[in-house]
Simulated assay, not measured.
Amino acid sequence: MISQFKSQLFLLSLLAFVGGIFLWTLGNPLQETYLGLASLFLIGLSLVIERLAPLHRDWNIDTGDTVGDIGSFVVVFGIIDSALKWLSPFVILALLPNTNTTLGWPLWAQITAATLLIELGAWASHWAHHKYKPLWALHAMHHSSERLYTLNGFRFHPLNHILNHLIMFLPLLALGFSKEALLGYTALALPVTLFQHSNVGFQFGMFSYLFNTNTVHRWHHSAAYNEGMHNFGRAFVVWDHIFGTYYHPSDENEPAIIGLSLGGPSYPPPNQTLPQICWPFAKDCCQ
């Protein structure tokens, strides 16, 4: 286990690193590209650290799911996510053709409000994907892994990701939040979300009452239903505290089993990516 002081210093350093890139590139048309490159660096860093100091050595062993995780990263976050960002303003224009709203708030206020609203949308979407069977049929793909390591954080059903994006970001675009405000939220979230599935024994202490760290997020991936129905926030757990879904006994404790909720329906194993994508459309998937 990495000491609490080193874990907290590490997270603060990542926040300063990405935040510095955001501030340095303000007004630069390539700001999003720079943040994308920072993301790739953080993913690589997480992969290295979990090799050098794994929480569970067996979680570093490929069980046939790595190819699917990489494929999901390329398709969902490389292609679909890029298309959604490009198409979203056109969707707003189609739905609200007469709107020309632009918030006149200072950037710091927009980022603060955007963080709270995006996290609220993320919490609501995530909770609904666990509560309702047709949505769970999409979200089960993300929970099918029986180990937690950096790359399975990108295993998402394409429709699950599309719904999340629409719920989190379309309302803010309609309200007139600036692109810089949304990227400001992204800069705050990246150091947390990209290490959320890391197979590293961090101890974040009080930081885990604010951020959805990997020690908090592991409980959400518990195969025990009563444990997994917690910690629905994206990068922050503010709304989990408000709605009573926060759960984190301690940094040292963790779920007994990672994976789909015990007693759930039969589901293709994580090394069968295409069957997992097709499964929600099977006649008896949601029975």
Rank of each mutant, 00 (worst) to 15 (best):
L87H: 07
N98W: 14
G233T: 00
L12S: 09
L37A: 14
T102K: 12
W279I: 04
P275T: 13
S145K: 03
A174K: 04
L35E: 06
N231R: 00
H220I: 01
Y267E: 03
S208M: 04
A16L: 15
T273V: 10
G259H: 08
Q272M: 10
L95R: 07
A235T: 08
I49E: 02
F90Q: 15
P89G: 04
Y34Q: 07
S222M: 07
N60R: 14
N152T: 13
T112I: 14
S88Q: 09
S39V: 09
A128C: 12
V48H: 13
Y209K: 13
A16C: 10
F211T: 00
R147Y: 05
S39L: 11
P275S: 06
R51Q: 15
L260S: 09
L190H: 00
M229V: 14
G244N: 08
A94P: 11
L210C: 09
I2E: 05
P269V: 14
K6F: 12
N214A: 01
K133G: 00
H157Y: 05
F211A: 06
G205N: 02
L45V: 08
A53C: 08
A256K: 15
L163P: 01
A235C: 09
N160Y: 10
L260Y: 12
Q287W: 03
D240A: 10
Q8H: 01
G36K: 01
Q8N: 12
V200P: 01
A53K: 15
Q31A: 15
I162L: 13
G64Q: 10
H130Y: 10
R147L: 05
L96M: 14
G121R: 01
L93M: 12
T33C: 01
R57Y: 04
N212W: 00
G244V: 09
F195I: 06
L40F: 10
W219A: 01
L47C: 12
A53M: 11
I242Q: 06
L116S: 06
W239F: 07
S46K: 05
K85R: 15
F202G: 02
F10P: 00
C286Y: 07
P255R: 06
G201L: 07
L148N: 06
F202N: 03
Y132R: 08
S222V: 07
G201N: 11
S39P: 01
K133E: 15
N160S: 13
L55A: 15
L12P: 04
F156C: 04
N212T: 05
F202P: 00
D81T: 11
L159D: 09
L95I: 13
Q203V: 04
G201A: 12
Y225P: 05
A83V: 12
P249C: 08
Q203C: 11
F5S: 14
L274A: 09
P158I: 07
F77C: 08
L26G: 02
F10K: 03
V200K: 05
N226V: 12
H165Y: 15
H139P: 00
H161L: 03
S7E: 03
G244Y: 10
C285G: 01
S222I: 06
H248V: 04
L210V: 13
N253Y: 05
L120Q: 08
F73C: 12
W123K: 02
V76E: 02
H220A: 01
V18I: 15
L30I: 01
G263I: 06
H129S: 13
R234L: 13
L42W: 00
H143K: 06
S39N: 11
H130W: 05
H165L: 05
M206I: 13
A122K: 00
